[in-house]
């Protein structure tokens, strides 16, 4: 894998300044570099600021201090170079599946014929070629999230951002989608920043895992995962790494211990 920096997060902090009494320092002085083609997971207790950090990278939320760069250029606003997938899918209910996928292509002015072709190809990639004309509300949660992933991939973003994309899905669907995401990322060589609160999900998917502390978050630990793919959660090395990381998180936030283990 090439080691060219794709995303550089340098000394970024975020404070929500609702009112003087209601100041939330979300994270402090975070620095992190993501290389081209790398899959990096952010893991941390809920409420520690993972989503906020991802929104900052997406250009959807302002930073209080620090810089975030994409290929050396400062990120100041959202755009199709950084596509984001949310836990709640965020599909447009008034658009059919294929027209959801085409949305980003419309926004950048791709002609109708090409939109349709690229939209169909993206749907095929996530295994939903037969559902192009369906409405989002006619699909299951797992299928909706596949549509959201297709909608993000079709615009060929430089970086794919995912915020707990499988958090609302049942265990079986989740592991199926993890497999598919892993396959798609291997096939397309996408640079990915992935937020999850599940350590095993992070290990299954990532080249590197970044553990965040509780709020105000800072980076607690970074681990490279070199296990061969496809990974097996029952492999002894996989299990050992899971236990090690869980222990770190348990130290970090004892009161979160149970939810972390359950995930």
């Amino acid at each position: 894998m090439a080691s060219r920096a794709k995303i550089e997060i340098s000394r970024v902090s975020k404070v929500f300044d609702g009112s003087p009494r209601n100041r939330t320092a979300v994270f402090n002085d975070i620095s992190l570099t993501i290389d081209e083609g790398e899959f990096v997971s952010l893991v941390g207790p809920s409420g520690c600021g993972k989503s906020t950090l991802l929104l900052c990278v997406a250009g959807l939320e302002s930073r209080t201090s620090g810089e975030i760069r994409l290929e050396g250029k400062l990120i100041t606003k959202p755009g199709p170079e950084l596509a984001i997938v949310f836990q709640e899918y965020a599909l447009f209910p008034w658009r059919s599946v294929i027209r959801n996928v085409e949305y980003g292509l419309e926004a950048v002015g791709v002609p109708a014929r090409q939109r349709r072709e690229r939209g169909r190809a993206a749907l095929n990639l996530v295994g939903l070629g037969a559902f192009a004309e369906y409405w989002p509300h006619e699909l299951s949660g797992g299928m909706r999230q596949r549509v959201a992933i297709a909608r993000a991939l079709v615009i060929e973003p430089k970086v794919l951002l995912l915020d707990e994309p499988f958090g609302a899905l049942d265990a079986l669907t989740r592991s199926l989608l993890q497999k598919e995401l892993s396959r798609i990322c291997q096939a397309t060589g996408k640079t990915v920043l992935f937020v999850t609160h599940s350590i095993s999900e992070a290990i299954y998917l990532s080249d590197r895992i970044v553990l965040l502390s509780k709020r105000p978050a800072s980076i607690r630990l970074e681990v490279r995962t070199a296990l061969p793919r496809p990974r097996d959660p029952y492999d002894p090395e996989f299990v050992a790494l899971t236990e090690r990381l869980e222990r770190v998180l348990l130290e970090e936030v004892p009161e979160q211990a149970e939810t972390m283990v359950a995930a």
Binding site: L60, G79, A83, A90, F92, Y103, A107, I155
Partner: peptide, 17 residues
């Protein structure tokens, strides 16, 4: 829904769109 707006903006939609 703020989420819809975020999704659309990150897909490249401008103010009018």
């Amino acid at each position: 829904d703020q989420l819809m707006i975020r999704a659309a903006r990150s897909l490249g939609a401008g103010h009018m769109r």
